[in-house]
C-alpha cells in the first residue's frame, strides 16, 4: 500500500510539470495582455510594467525563473492586484471555498445517498421514482437558476436568510451550500442507486438474505459497503470540482472564494494568478484522485489483494 502511494506521488511530479508548462504557454498565447485597458496605455508605461514583472525577458527565461520561484513555494505577485502576492490571495480564498465545498458536500451526500439507497431497495416503484425525482431537481436546475430562486424565496420573500456574503451575517452560509450541494446530490443519488442495485443482485447478498438476516442489516452492513464504491470513486474528483467549480455560486452570493479567482484570473489575463491557481488545483486534483483510489482499495478487499499481487 505504501509503495502504491509513493509511486503515485512520484507520478504526480511529471504530471504537474506538464500542467505548468502547458498552462504557461497557453496563457501567453491568449490574446490581450494583463495590462490592456479601455483607455490606451502609453508605451512607456507598458515598458515599465513589463520590466517590473519580468515580461520583457525571453520566454524561456521567464519560464525558468518561474519554476525557480515555484520551487521555493512562491507563486509571484498578482498582476491584477499589484499589492498582493498570489500566495496571499490563495491563502485568503482557500479556507472560504473549502468550507463552502465541505458544507455543499455534506448536503450532497446526505440527500444523494439517502435518496439513492431508498430508491434501490424497491426499484421501479414509487419508492424509487419519488426520491430519485426529488434528487434530480438539483441537476435539472443549474446553479445560476437555483441560487437566485432560493434567494428570492428565502432571502427576499420570507426574509429568513441573508441574500449574500460569507461569514458576515448569521445564516449566510446556508443558501450557498444548498445551491452548490444540490447539483451534486443527483449525481450521488444516481451513483449510489446504481451501485446498490448492482450489489443487491450479487450472490453474497442473496446468501446473507438466505441466512435470514433482517433486511436492515443486509442493507446497512453488507450492501452499503460495496454499493457505495462508485460514490466514493466520485467523491475525490467531485470535491476538487466543488473547489474549482464554485464560481457561479460565489458570484451569485458575493463570496470571496477561490472559484471566483480561478475564472476571473483567466479573464483578467493575470498570468501569475492563472498559473498559481492552476498549479494549486492540479495538486489538489492529483491528491484527491489518489485519495479516492486508496479508499476504493480499502473498501474492496478484492482489489487490495490484486494490488499486492500485481506489485
Amino acid at each position: 500500500m505504501l509503495r502504491f502511494i509513493l509511486s503515485r506521488l512520484l507520478q504526480a511530479i511529471p504530471v504537474l510539470l506538464v500542467v505548468i508548462t502547458a498552462t504557461f504557454l497557453l496563457v501567453r498565447c491568449a490574446p490581450g495582455g494583463p495590462f490592456s485597458a479601455e483607455k490606451a496605455v502609453p508605451p512607456e508605461v507598458v515598458r515599465a510594467l513589463e520590466a517590473q514583472y519580468r515580461l520583457d525577458q525571453p520566454i524561456w527565461q521567464q519560464y525558468l525563473s518561474y519554476l525557480g520561484d515555484l520551487a521555493r513555494g512562491e507563486f509571484g505577485p498578482s498582476f491584477r492586484y499589484p499589492g498582493r502576492t498570489v500566495n496571499e490571495l490563495i491563502a485568503g480564498g482557500l479556507p472560504i471555498t473549502a468550507e463552502l465545498a465541505f458544507y455543499a458536500m455534506l448536503v450532497a451526500i446526505l440527500i444523494g445517498v439517502c435518496a439513492g439507497v431508498i430508491a434501490a431497495l424497491r426499484p421501479n416503484t414509487p419508492q424509487d421514482y419519488l426520491p430519485m425525482s426529488a434528487a434530480m431537481l438539483g441537476i435539472c436546475m443549474p446553479s445560476f437558476l437555483m441560487g437566485p430562486l432560493l434567494v428570492l424565496v428565502f432571502g427576499i420573500w420570507l426574509e429568513w436568510l441573508p441574500v449574500s456574503g460569507w461569514g458576515e451575517l448569521a445564516g449566510d452560509k446556508i443558501l450557498p451550500a444548498i445551491t452548490l450541494g444540490t447539483g451534486y446530490a443527483a449525481y450521488i443519488a444516481r451513483l449510489s442507486r446504481g451501485g446498490m442495485l448492482e450489489v443487491m443482485s450479487q450472490d453474497y447478498i442473496r446468501t446473507a438474505r438466505a441466512k435470514g438476516l433482517p433486511e436492515r442489516v443486509v442493507v446497512l452492513k453488507h450492501a452499503l459497503r460495496g454499493g457505495l464504491i462508485p460514490v466514493v470513486a466520485f467523491l475525490g474528483p467531485a470535491f476538487a470540482g466543488l473547489l474549482s467549480g464554485s464560481f457561479v455560486v460565489e458570484t451569485i452570493f458575493q463570496i470571496p472564494g477561490l472559484g471566483r479567482f480561478y475564472v476571473q484570473a483567466a479573464f483578467n489575463r493575470d498570468y501569475t494568478m492563472i498559473l498559481g491557481t492552476t498549479v494549486f488545483f492540479a495538486t489538489l486534483i492529483v491528491l484527491f484522485n489518489l485519495l479516492a483510489d486508496i479508499i476504493a482499495v480499502w473498501i474492496n478487499p478484492k482489489m487490495r489483494h490484486q494490488l499486492s499481487r500485481s506489485r
Binding site: 509511486s7 507520478q11 504526480a12 511529471p14 504530471v15 504537474l16 506538464v18 500542467v19 502547458a22 498552462t23 497557453l26 496563457v27 498565447c29 491568449a30 490574446p31 474528483p237 476538487a240 480561478y262 475564472v263 483567466a266 479573464f267 492563472i274 491557481t277 492552476t278 488545483f281 492540479a282 486534483i285 492529483v286 484522485n289
Partner: peptide, 25 residues
C-alpha cells in the same frame, strides 16, 4: 494505465477557460 490516467489528470488540471478562449481565437 498509469500513463493514461496521468494524462487524464493533466487535462483535468488545465485551465478550461483559457483553453476555450484560445480555441475560439
Amino acid at each position: 494505465d498509469a500513463v493514461m490516467m496521468r494524462l487524464v489528470d493533466i487535462l483535468y488540471a488545465l485551465p478550461f477557460m483559457i483553453f476555450i478562449v484560445l480555441l475560439m481565437v
